[in-house]
Write a protein that binds this DNA or RNA. Sequence first.
RNA 1: GGGCGAUUAGCUCAGUGGUUAGAGCGCUCGCUUCACACGCGAGAGGUCCAAGGUUCAAGUCCUUGAUCGCCCACCA
Length: 900
Amino acid sequence: MPREIPKAYEPQQIEQKWAKSWAEEKLFRADVNAPGPVFSIVIPPPNVTGSLHIGHMLDHTEIDILTRWRRMQGYNTLYLPGTDHAGISTQRVVVRQLAAKGINYRDLGREAFEKKVWEWKAESGGTITKQMLQLGESCDWTREKFTLSPELSRAVTEVFVRLYEDGLIYRGHYIVNWCPQCRTAISDLETVHEERQGHLWHIRYPIVGTNESVVVATTRPETMLGDTAVAVHPSDERYQHLIGKRVMLPLVNREIPIVDDFVVDREFGTGAVKVTPAHDPNDFEIGRRHNLPEIDVMTDDAKMSAAAGPYAGLDRFEARKRVVADLEAAGLLVKIADHTHAVGTCDRCGTIIEPRASTQWFVKMKPLAEPAIAAVERGDIELLPDNRRTEYFEWMRNIRDWCISRQLWWGHRIPAWTCGDCKEIIVARQAPTACTKCGLTHLTQDPDVLETWFSSALWPFSTMGWPDDTPDYRKYYPTTLLITAYDILFFWVARMIMMGLKFTGQVPFKQVWMHSIVRNADGQKMSKSKGTGIDPVEMNEKFGTDAMRFTLASMAAPGTDIILTEDRILSYRAFANKIWNAARFVFMNLDKYETAGGETLEVLAAADTRAAAPYAAGAEIPLIDRWIFSRLARATAQVNDALEHFRFHEAAHVVYHFFWGDFCDWYIEWVKPELVSEDRVKAAATWKNLFSAFESALRLLHPFMPFLTEELWHQLPQRDGARSIALDKFPEAHAERIDTLAEEQVALLQEIMTAARNIRAEMKLDPKAKLPAQLGPAAPAVQSTVERSLDTILRLANLSSLSFSKPPFDSTKGVVRSNKDFELFIAFDAAIDIPAEVARLRKELDRLTKDIASKDARLKDETFRSKAPENIVKGMEATLAERRTEFGKLEERLAQFERL
RNA sequence: GGGCGAUUAGCUCAGUGGUUAGAGCGCUCGCUUCACACGCGAGAGGUCCAAGGUUCAAGUCCUUGAUCGCCCACCA
């Protein structure tokens, strides 16, 4: 019966078909009752055509590779729902888009903003963001309507309350990173430092009651309006006499004290620093120590506030210009120096952060960090690759308290209420009806929401039904392995570890694999919100998701980032096409075979195709069948080992070369005639082996190219009820099945055929003409190997005959190619390009001479002989002998030319 | 300022101290061979950034330097 293999490989159609099917089959859904070990990781929904997550593209590729591989090994593979994070990033994207147009989302009004978000959701549907949106559907994102999912929401509240009760969450007034565009506080991690070319303005502050003055240096002159002191180092001799005196703050005409504080760096600027406690972290600390007032001279959107007097209402940068101009006019601007410094910008909108004193909710991190450091030190959690450990420790040991409250329109509302009467703050699981202190009922809930990473940190257990003791929680917590991009180590991984240890007493996962991230040629991250780099959706559509996945896998060497190029994807698109065509060849010939009265595929495939061993028709298994199964066993062992060690690029490389190089280029070409052989028994045996090898190759390929392999696998007869290749077994490593002798013999035959083709190509002989050749074998074993595969050699090397003769051959009447095992001679009448051949020989001899000299010297070195391992010495001796053999042959041929 | 990584073929990159350093693309030559021109066959192409060191042996380990990149960082 004819198979349905279209001529053209069209990935999109295949992808759509199988993505739908997998979603229906729930292939990667966790099943708490399923047997087998649990392998659980961050997983995307299975119904993705573009199996990529935009922010961390490799998540979906590599995880999926491991997931499918482990699933095929019988692991019970877990797939977890996303957190609110994905839903909330929708808002972020819209905020960013609006900001790019100079619009603050708040200025739109809540209703219009909400409308924009839904519009964007609709617009971006069908693209990569669709997955995120699907995840986000479960969370209702406006503050009023926020429900997360009831389970996750409950966990977040529970954690907040418990941390508060333990004294690990507090409400405090400190300097925070304030984003004037988003109009919210953000955490340290959400700020991005950028080197900016700025100025260091030197300003003269007159000292009250003297003619003296002190010069301070600042990069933000507009903040001087909020100065409440000038500080110098306690032991700075230049300023000793000024400590305790007062200066008249220019422009504002406010008297402020000169204080001494150890944080002042005598070397920087003038050694005297203006102190603005409300707008600088250092100054804030100085202010606390010296009891200085805080004057916040700005509003939420970084315009100057009423406290800035005449500058009120101006934008901060406009105010900067005016302040500088006014100081200059007053003759108080001493100098302006160029100064590059790091400016904090908002991770989500790029606006320059204003450090600003503000009352926020914080988490005390030290007590949470200590057990998390210990867990990694003890090896309870393994961070891989392990140079990431250093980063983790560094960050954890210098951790600062975490500002978790946000003044945004979406997020999980903070479960805290303030009593309008006695100002008591009540943190509770349920909204209280009356104040716990004064009993009155004028309670208002804190308007702030929690930052998304707070709830994300709970993900390993909040998704399992925690705080209830559920079967899911018992089975799946802690999990085995977390895979993610390294750029999320602090945001998420570290916080999951801390929260996991705090609330469950166990590590959330035992291993963390941090894969590389994709950058564009400028070194920028591929980013969903920034629109940088190659658009993965476009690439998927252009080349197919399988090609894209394979490309990413092939480039996923640990430790370095990936720069994706179209060329590379294109080459794996070609590979996908090659697999497709190999399948077409197989099925087309099968049709012919069946039509001619051969067994049907069903009969052929009734043989155990999973035996991964060649099928024997008679007493002797053909060499090439032994060979392909040996190559398969080798590749399988290598792929399994590579995946076990997260070496995706190696696995991809091995499977690529096995399929293209061994299976297509040699095996298929070799057995072509057998497939239509008159000898029915022989033909059937070949078919069985071909199918067996092909089917194994598909399973080997499946984690890398899931759609294509699924499609082709279903064309092969499968056992009743077989639903997906992903549910079949992954080929098992059986290194003992490697047939070294078969590999050596085939390698020899390949070299003979290559030599013959080389002579033809180099001498520009008629590509169609069948030529007679002579072989001078070095050993009887070579001759018998050749004799047994003579027909194949003649066919694949396009020779009319191959006879055995004793060398040397006459180089002047034809061309010789040789190696340690044989000399191959093809005689012909046409003129030989002697200079070319001589040059070739000389070059080859030159290389051999150097190699022989170097090996000879090494082997004569007694130290080498006594210190190097025996196998190295023996191996080198053998190689040296071979090189000398080759050298002799080449020298003889060169001599023949020179005798002319 | 601190940390991490990179530097290998024209390009993008692999390379686990050991015997002639690999891949893909590109390039050259030849093939419309009935699975595949997204292909087949045959080739060319590399002082492995530099200088020292360790070792019997270094692309691989160590030191220093150069260049590029990333992350972290409250010096105004």
